[in-house]
Design a protein around this nucleic acid. Sequence first.
DNA 1: GATGTAAATGGTATCGATACCATCATGGAG
DNA 2: CTCCATGATGGTATCGATACCATTTACATC
Lengths: 353, 353
Amino acid sequence: MDGQMAPQILPPPQHQRRKRGKDASAVTLKDVARLAGVSAITVSRAINQPDVVSEETLTSVRKAIEQLGYVPNLLAGGLKSSQSRLVAAIVPSIGTSMFAEAVEALTDRLSDAGYEVLLGLSGFAQSREDRILSAVLSRKPDAIFLTGIDHSARARQQLLAAGIPVVESWDLTPNPIDIAIGFSHENAGRAAAKHFLEKGYDRIAVISASDKRALQRRDGFLKHLAETGRTDVALRLTETPGSLERGREALADLLNGGVQPDSVFCTVDPLAQGAIIEAQVRGLDVPGDLAVMGFGNFSFSPHIHPSLSTISFDRRKIGELAADLILAELGGTPSPERVVDIGFTLVERQSTG
Amino acid sequence: MDGQMAPQILPPPQHQRRKRGKDASAVTLKDVARLAGVSAITVSRAINQPDVVSEETLTSVRKAIEQLGYVPNLLAGGLKSSQSRLVAAIVPSIGTSMFAEAVEALTDRLSDAGYEVLLGLSGFAQSREDRILSAVLSRKPDAIFLTGIDHSARARQQLLAAGIPVVESWDLTPNPIDIAIGFSHENAGRAAAKHFLEKGYDRIAVISASDKRALQRRDGFLKHLAETGRTDVALRLTETPGSLERGREALADLLNGGVQPDSVFCTVDPLAQGAIIEAQVRGLDVPGDLAVMGFGNFSFSPHIHPSLSTISFDRRKIGELAADLILAELGGTPSPERVVDIGFTLVERQSTG
DNA sequence: GATGTAAATGGTATCGATACCATCATGGAG
DNA sequence: CTCCATGATGGTATCGATACCATTTACATC
């Protein structure tokens, strides 16, 4: 990868043409038409607008399709109709369930509407997002789902030029490119801080992953504490994505460093789970000796012991809403709401007893 | 969903054409050509085979591209060249890291080679796989990545007709459609059984998810035990995907049912983690009172307490190998290996101490 | 100086489907 | 009986790029 601005055009494909000359599935609309004894357009209509074709032709066309095993070529259709029935989803990663669930919900819902999802993984780096965005846009998706609201100037420009519905997710912004669906991570952090204060915790620590949104939660948490006069908060940063392993390490590091917190806020649940385990291994009682709060309400969180207090938000709903708003916009009846705050809830469980 | 055989053709799109008449990004190859003062084909060559174009033209073409913000239309290119640079990946789900990691690895590697991944989620149901397969094939992917080796007759036929590289993953088979990458789940189960016997466990139980591969592991486990004369094995089935919650429930159910196992094999790690937690909550020592073994070596498994003995296999490698073999085949130099056994390793940790 | 070869570029047909407009029955209104 | 709306179907151009073949120029060879 060159350090320079990535060229707008993809690197030249290096692979040869596929060897088999004619594709085995050379069955086209025309073949079906011939067999059914009608014209190609009629076959096209039989498929896409069955109600304008007579029952009789419909039957014979369907039979011909069946017989030939015809599979329409969406590339060709999309070229002429400028509808690819493709929605691109660009997320940092699907290795943790964080984004995977949203993508899954998005895919499920779009699939029912006859759209497919093109997956792009940006890996938390903006430069890579740009590259993937270019690649993806050349497939002329009908809409695009992005993570976050920070995009390069080039990216914004390309998205605008594409003239398609764009959903920015996980975050909120007053100026979405098109639509934003998310919630305030800073407020989520503040909510955690408030909870800690209400519980009377005194020696507070934070373990945070280092991606932008985790840091926003951390900042919200610290700000709220600062506003109530507390600035003596121990902090450990870990890699993104935050994992159980990193959580253990970070807590161990805190404790070994002489810090004796009575509570720790972890900016993502796996970190919190790790912290709990590390505490338990060291013979500390959670929440008696150390209260732990996470973020994200992962599927394991209610079921570990002690169950994990966390901040919950509906990941699947982000994907579903995105799909709904995209479909509405594609359907010509865009929702007037451009920014959707899906909110979050603080779920108090045993770990902050 | 009708109970009948899904029609080969997708349901008619119900959404209107997008409202904006002309796409804002109406910049085509021709526009670039005009500005650069060359013909369209030369621009095409400048992009795809830069080495056959003179340095001079290359420069002016690149400038024109930059200036106009040209984004190539891969739909059109793909139509003529019958290369979509698209690889379809159909997996049951990406909500758990099980398949997500393989898809992620596949996507990463293909992305570097200039391919994009089209994601299909089949949700463990074969009927849905068929429907998604049809939808996906109409996009003319250059290759396809599937989960499992069980596909309907229609699916096989369509895949064969498509004439593209097909990777079946997670499982092995002597008769792959094209390429299979996986390992023997039955043997994995056997390995677990063998380990239990070596450790001298006596009252053995199994908690299994109910998807096909989990059941194969369970069966391998039970068969091996049966072959050594043990048939008194308590068994609990849970939903797929197996989760921590289900693991707790299943173990609770076993213990409440009067079964007193000294060891339990869980066919997927999250179930095992759940079992450990349930045991601990009940005051049982793991592994002293109850040994637990999982499967999959999830990222949390080495770091929980006690650390989880499990059967490890390289999920990312499946995706990477798939990408490599696909690229090799597309590049005209297919690997002679049609079936790749990536194997597995039993990792002994504290939970079967 | 004639000829051959490679490099650089252009022209045209074409991929497979759909948009758009035209055509042709059919049948009810006047 | 004519007229025209309606329904069903076909013809043709076209989407944007690339394959294929042709052409032009430069330059080395004999």
